[in-house]
């Protein structure tokens, strides 16, 4: 893997250039709430030590709310117009390994039978500039789902902080190489030994479960009481799904404009909501919160694995950190692991 060095000053020049070249640069908000479009070098927050934002950056590839068609009623027929989708050149700057993988993971479901052009138009052109992660708390469990704080998986370019002023820039993919080509002037030659040394010093979060074991247990213990125990206190707020970098459920609703026209919207939805599976008949196959929580766990650690050979979780710990009633997903899955 090729490695270069970029100084902090050059990084801001680089970002300014990207913005000039019509790239949409997305970076973590300094308040650590969500991700925002960067309008200039002053907004840059590339810090390997900060806590993952409350909400991941998935909204830029999988919008939280977006029109999928516009319609207008003309006498006996409908005029249907599809929204123009400009191909976006997105650049995610400073994605931690637990964020960097998210687009790849979601892309499997969005390209499984139906090719979701809303997702693809944004995701395919996007470049992920990852950064090695030096933050760790009790909620981090990336090592348990096959990632690590230093993995370049999912990133096209990967930054390693060398010292206060300099980053090592690893060129991970062909796309990354092509992307960085016009900006060579900001890079200087790197030395792999130093970044290796720094990366080796970063401590891994403890591995808490084996995903294959968990998946097998889930197959055989559909009615286990562990889910009801969580359901007892879960309030069904859906914060976990909305903050998650890979949760991808959505709902489709029509919104009228006036009596004859309107638009069809695609909005985020979450399996923790009581209405998520409520049928028109009034029957609800997932009646209790426990059953809904089981769906959350099983979708992440079994169904997605069975279907796409991928764990639908990056171990970022956002859902646990933000849960108003303190449910820790890693704790629940670790408990399952100990049962299996």
């Amino acid at each position: 893997m090729e490695e270069k060095i970029i100084s902090l000053d050059n990084l801001s020049f680089f970002v300014n250039d990207l913005i000039k070249d019509n790239h949409i640069v997305i970076g973590q908000d300094s308040k650590e709430i969500n991700w925002k479009r960067i309008t200039g070098a002053k907004d840059i927050v590339v810090n390997s030590k900060n806590i993952p934002s409350n909400i991941s950056y998935k909204e830029f590839v999988f919008a939280k709310t977006e029109p999928i068609i516009y319609y207008k009623n003309k006498k006996d027929e409908f005029d249907i117009v599809e929204p123009a989708l400009p191909r976006q050149k997105l650049v995610f700057l400073g994605a931690k390994p637990c964020d960097a993988r998210s687009i790849e993971i979601m892309s499997k479901v969005f390209n499984w039978d139906y090719k979701d052009k809303f997702f693809n138009e944004r995701a395919e052109g996007s470049i992920v500039i990852g950064v090695a992660c030096n933050y760790q708390d009790k909620f981090c469990f990336c090592t348990s789902v096959g990632l690590s704080p230093v993995t370049e998986k999912g990133s096209d370019l990967f930054l390693v902080p060398l010292d206060e002023k300099n980053f090592a820039l690893q060129i991970v993919t062909e796309r990354g190489k092509e992307f960085i080509q016009p900006y060579q002037k900001y890079l200087s030659d790197g030395n792999q030994a130093k970044s290796k040394e720094i990366l080796s010093k970063i401590k891994n979060p403890e591995k808490r479960f084996e995903t294959s074991k968990v998946s097998e247990w889930l197959t055989n213990n559909f009615e286990h009481k562990i889910f009801d125990n969580v359901g007892d206190i879960c309030v069904g707020c859906g914060q976990c799904a909305f903050a998650c970098p890979v949760c991808h459920c959505f709902d489709i609703v029509d919104e009228e404009c006036d009596y004859s026209s309107g638009r069809r919207m695609k909005n985020w939805d979450a399996c923790q909501f009581g209405l998520f599976t409520l049928h028109g008949s009034g029957h609800n196959p997932r009646e209790t919160q426990g059953k809904r929580y089981r769906q959350r766990i099983a979708h992440k650690f079994k169904y997605y694995q069975d279907k796409f050979d991928e764990v639908l979780c990056t171990g970022c710990g956002r859902c646990s950190r933000g849960c108003p009633v303190g449910i820790d997903i890693a704790e629940v899955v670790a408990e399952i692991n100990s049962l299996a």
Binding site: I55, E59, V235, C237, G238, A241, F242, W268
Partner: peptide, 12 residues
């Protein structure tokens, strides 16, 4: 603008 309509405010 940051609202994601998760209705966590209501549920909590």
């Amino acid at each position: 603008e940051r609202c994601v309509k998760c209705y966590a405010c209501r549920q909590a």
